[in-house]
């Protein structure tokens, strides 16, 4: 139960901060250690609101580690230590006063492998809003579920079988169900950790189209192994290598004329 509530994350406060400041997320001198291993070194980045930022880099470069820092998912790993500060709307999320559960309400997450609950499609989406008291009556909850499924581009495919099991959907549909589940609790930021790596190209295209649509209302950070995906969906791209953030740039620039040699070698598929 506990892990489920961590996963879907919400609180009663759902007011969407319409902050138009230059950065939604601001990381300063972030260092991450797994025991003795220094996994991330001195990462500084400003992530813009209502845009898609992609993290790319070879396996083990620290991009997923950094993504998980953004909603304190690393808190669950005993050996993990995070230093530096990460501000969301100017508030340091590593401040001891910050409640991680409230934080994760604001910062939703979608994982590599679709992980619907073994419950009905309706319950998958309704679970978060219900336990956090977002709906006072059944009709409110119905509206939230319908709206979240519509936002996730799944409504037309499932509206007549909301009581069927979520695990019975195809992989692509399951992933969109997970996105609907994240959206249902009205987060401001959605983190996606390789959300398409288990999907076929058609399902991938649907999720990418969804990311593109969600961008107008949410700040999206996506980790991807597919450079083409980063190039397709993001406005900004950050390249990680050996625990360092080596370059962060406009996506257009990043894939035509990157500044850093390591970025160049990686995206061009050359030996570093």
């Amino acid at each position: 139960m506990n892990s489920i509530s961590t996963m879907i994350t919400t609180t009663t406060s759902t007011t969407k901060a319409a902050t138009m400041s230059e950065s939604k997320i601001s990381a300063r001198n972030v260092q991450v250690f797994y025991g003795e291993k220094h996994a991330l070194r001195d990462v500084n980045i400003e992530i813009r609101p209502r845009s898609v930022t992609a993290f790319i880099g070879p396996s083990g470069c620290g991009k997923s580690t950094f993504l998980r820092c953004l909603n304190r998912m690393n808190d669950t790993i005993a050996s993990c230590r995070v230093e530096g500060s990460i501000g969301i709307d100017g508030e340091n999320i590593y401040d001891p006063k910050v409640d991680p559960v409230q934080l994760r309400a604001k910062v939703g997450m979608v994982f590599q492998k679709p992980n619907p609950f073994p419950k009905s499609i309706y319950e998958n989406v309704a679970y978060g809003p219900r336990i956090h008291g977002l709906a006072r009556k059944k009709s409110d909850l119905d509206d939230i579920v319908a709206s979240a499924l519509q936002k996730a581009g799944l409504w037309n495919e499932v509206k007549d079988r909301l009581q069927e099991s979520g695990t019975g959907l195809s992989g692509g549909q399951q992933q969109r169900l997970c996105i609907a589940r994240a959206v249902a609790v009205s987060p401001e930021i959605i983190l996606m950790d390789e959300p398409c790596s288990a999907l076929d190209p058609i399902a991938t295209a649907k999720v990418e189209e969804l990311i593109h649509e969600l961008r107008s209302n949410y700040t999206i950070v996506i980790v991807t192994h597919s450079m083409q995906q980063a190039a397709r969906v993001s406005q900004r791209t950050a390249m990680f290598h050996l625990g360092l953030l080596v370059e962060e740039n406009d996506t257009d620039k990043m894939f035509t004329n990157p500044d850093d040699q390591r970025t160049q070698d990686y995206i061009m598929g050359r030996f570093g």
Partner: peptide, 9 residues
Amino acid sequence: RQPMASDLR
């Protein structure tokens, strides 16, 4: 090959 950066140029 879906070329990138200087390969694409």
